[in-house]
Design a binder for these strands. Structure first.
Length: 431
RNA sequence: CGGGGCGUAGUGUAACGGUAGCAUUCAUGCUUUGGGAGCAUGCGGUCCGAGUUCAAAUCUCGGCGCCCCGACCA
């Protein structure tokens, strides 16, 4: 029993044998999915659909989600963000203070009751709770600025979930909130966030196709900024000026906007995009509604200047799966791929030597801390290659009788399809 | 929330109102082993409820679920 348990025990986090992975690939996607992202992610075993707009993240999918989170985390930390996590259950009374408990005002509420009586809301956003909480920590101008962020599962009662994981009723979002002394401080941080966001998108491989876009401002300001990535399956239409790096959402495109930006309509190119981030200037309205203020040097109470900054983590994952894919499957950017290397053994009739060799390389890769998925399953080559293409790990390394005869490893780049025969040391150089 | 479409094994698909079939997955055995192999055997299904009918996957009504277009997306 102990031996069986140990043999099945998970190895280092960075490595995994495919025979241990409980998910399986599928040749066909369920017909109830039309969106490419969902089709691919389900077929490859990254996600499981629980109900419309609600998806579970399976081992491979969670790895990708965590990779994306980590990139975002690093960039948010770099501009002074402090990570925390708020609650999913929210107070009705709090939202009533800002007049946003009503279903007429916020139409995506999930609400439920406590057994002891009383109603609670399921968090669709966290600006109210965070601002309310900050009342306990902000009292002096010396306390500011404060930037906090979290990765939260947002629950939104959308009347129409759609597009796979691009628009769900339950999804993971990074939301950051800034608390500043005044508009000048706020603007400075706001602009730093724009830069940080663009660094995130560059690291995700979509930097070139992502535009900071003027969009409808919401309740407190004329404009907000959206981060829009060019994508065929996008829901938005924006107008871009590639040279000037200016982009405007169709919803706010009018003569006045054009004049303000100093461009003419004819200079702009229309493109379909998907929103991958959105940032807002809240001003002091929310602070005033909730009574969040600080004392300045003169002892006067001044409302805190707030902003909010969102990135849909799971939406970005869907977008990447969709944008980076071909007819065979997903082609993950290296930065978010669940593993760096897909080691595939091709085991023939008497493949003991191949197995031994593959096992050895698996160990070496693991020891070197290279993330590796080892397909040690006793399947036919075609099936293993098809799976490998579908799952979309950047580099495939094949060990077979053929490669052993040559004393080399077969390296295939998922993106370019280029195959090369390398020695083990050359492989490590490549990685 | 307006409009449209659709619910049949885990998945993908057939079946005039008359024996629910095929493929795949899965299990077992043999063969096979560089691009989702072959043969054989086996397990597994009509979304739920009511109605019409001698008889309902099929027709009617209601419910539930799923997808798409639009609206919405603070």
């Amino acid at each position: 029993m102990v031996a069986i348990f140990l043999s099945r025990a998970a190895p280092k986090k960075s490595a995994m044998k495919q025979s241990h992975l409980f998910t399986k690939t599928r040749k066909e996607a369920p017909t109830d999915e039309v969106a490419q992202n969902a089709k691919l992610l389900i077929r490859a075993g990254y996600i499981h659909k629980e109900m419309a707009g609600v998806y579970a993240y399976l081992p491979l999918g969670l790895r990708v989600q965590n990779k994306i989170k980590q990139i975002v985390r690093e960039e948010m930390d770099a501009i002074g963000g402090q990570e925390l996590i708020m609650t999913a259950l929210q107070s009705k009374e709090l939202w009533e203070k800002t007049k946003r408990w009503s279903d007429e005002v916020v139409d995506v509420w999930f609400k439920t009751n406590l057994k002891t009586g009383g109603e609670v809301g399921l968090g669709w956003s966290h600006e109210e709770p965070i601002a309310e909480m900050m009342k306990g920590y902000i009292s002096s101008f010396r306390d500011l600025p404060i930037f906090v962020y979290q990765f939260q599962t947002k629950l939104r009662n959308e009347v129409r979930a759609k597009s796979g994981i691009l628009r769900g009723r339950e999804f993971v979002m990074k939301d950051m909130y800034s608390f500043c002394l005044d508009e000048a401080d706020h603007t400075a941080f706001y602009n730093r966030t724009i830069d940080a966001y663009m660094r995130v998108y560059h690291r995700l491989g979509i930097g070139e196709d992502t535009f900071v876009t003027f969009a409808a401002g919401g309740a407190f300001t004329k404009f907000s900024h959206e981060f829009q990535t060019i994508a065929e399956t996008g829901e938005d239409v924006i107008y871009i000026h590639r040279a000037k790096k200016i982009a405007v959402n169709k919803e706010v495109l009018n003569d006045e906007t054009l004049k303000n930006l100093g461009v003419s309509r004819s200079e702009l190119e229309e493109v379909k995009t998907a929103e991958v981030g959105n940032i807002f200037n809240f001003g002091t309205q929310k602070s005033e509604d909730l009574g969040l203020s600080y004392k300045n040097e003169k002892g006067e109470a001044i409302p805190v200047w707030m902003g909010s900054y969102g990135i849909g983590i799971t939406r970005v994952m869907g977008l990447l799966a969709e944008k980076f894919s071909d007819e065979k499957g997903i082609v993950w950017p290296e930065s978010v791929a669940p593993f760096r290397v897909h080691l595939v053994s091709i085991v023939g009739a008497n493949g003991e030597a191949v197995k031994k060799e593959a096992e050895k390389l698996y160990q070496t890769l693991t020891d070197k801390g290279i993330e590796v998925l080892y397909d040690d399953r006793d399947l036919r080559p075609g099936e293993k290659f098809a799976d490998s293409d579908l799952i979309g790990i950047p580099t495939r390394v094949v060990i077979s009788e053929k490669t052993m005869k040559e004393g080399k490893l077969e390296i295939k780049d998922r993106k370019t399809g280029t195959v090369s025969m390398l020695s083990e040391s050359d492989l490590f150089k490549l990685l």
